[in-house]
Design a protein around this nucleic acid. Structure first.
Lengths: 125, 125
DNA sequence: TGCTAAGTTCGACTCAACTCGTACTGCTGC
DNA sequence: GCAGCAGTACGAGTTGAGTCGAACTTAGCA
C-alpha cells in the first residue's frame, strides 16, 4: 500500500528526490475515479502509451517523442493530457520537455490489479 | 462462436443446466477486448448495473426491471446491449423477459481482478 | 379474441471526444 | 538578440455515445 495512510493529505506524497520540477496539475489519490480511469484507458493509443511506460520504463520519465507515435503533436498533447487528468500519469516540465510516468503506487493503491491488465494487453487482442 | 482454437483447454465452459434458452449474440471469450470492456465500464450507469449483479446476485439472472433504474426503457435497452456486446454480461430470453448475468468466469479468465474493481466501486468515489 | 406488460427498434437531438492544422509560448544555444 | 525546437492552445470538422419519445413485437393470460 502507499506510504501514507489515514488523515488523507489531500495531495500525494511520493518520496521523490528533491529538486524535481513540480508535477503538473493532477487529481489526488483520493480523487481518482474508476469510471474516469477506465474511460481514459478505453482508447487504444492511450493504452499503448501506458503499457509502454509500464514495460519499458519504471522509474524514468519520458517525453512525447520517446514513444515514437505517428501522430501530430497536437493529438499527442490531447492524449497525454487526458491520461494526466484522469490521474494515470504524472507529468513534469524539464526545461523544454514535458516528461511522463505512470502513477504506479497511486493506481495500485486505489485500483489493485488494473495496471497488470494494461501491461498484459496487446494491441492485437 | 467461441471456437477456442488451439491446445489451451479454453476456459471452463460454465456447467449450465440444460433447457436454458440460447444466449443472445455475444463475443466469445477469445474475442474479448480490453479497450472495449473498459469503455463499456466507463459509464456510471453500467458500472451500477454490473456491480449490482455482482454483489446482489451470483448465479441468478435478472430482468431490467429488477435493477430499479429510473430511466426510460429504451435507455436501459441501450446500456444492456452495450454490456452484452462488450462481453460483460450474458442475456437470455425467458418468455417475455430478457434476463442478464455477468460472465464472471470469462472475465476472470481474460482480465483477472477487473471484476473486483467493479465490485469495490461506489458511485460516490 | 383482445388486453397487458417487458422489452426492442427507430429516429432525432445533444454533447463530448477524437483528429488535426495553425498559431503560439518558452527554453536553450549560438 | 535570435533562431530552432518541444510542446501547448485554440478552433473547426467529424464521429460516436448517451438520452429519450413513440411505435412496434411478442408472450401470457383472461
Amino acid at each position: 500500500m502507499s506510504a501514507t495512510t489515514g488523515a488523507a493529505p489531500a495531495v500525494k506524497v511520493l518520496p521523490e528526490p528533491p529538486g524535481l520540477p513540480e508535477p503538473l496539475p493532477e487529481p489526488g489519490v483520493d480523487e481518482l475515479r474508476l469510471e474516469t480511469v477506465l474511460g481514459a484507458l478505453s482508447d487504444p493509443l492511450r493504452l499503448t502509451i501506458v503499457r509502454k511506460l509500464l514495460l519499458e520504463s519504471e522509474d524514468f520519465d519520458h517525453t512525447c517523442g520517446w514513444f515514437g507515435l505517428d501522430r501530430p503533436k497536437s493529438s499527442l498533447t490531447h492524449h497525454f493530457k487526458a491520461l494526466r487528468e484522469a490521474g494515470i500519469t504524472r507529468q513534469r516540465q524539464y526545461g523544454l520537455e514535458r516528461r511522463s510516468h505512470v502513477r504506479v503506487e497511486d493506481l495500485n493503491a486505489r485500483f489493485p490489479g488494473l495496471l497488470d491488465l494494461v501491461a498484459a494487453w496487446s494491441p492485437q487482442g
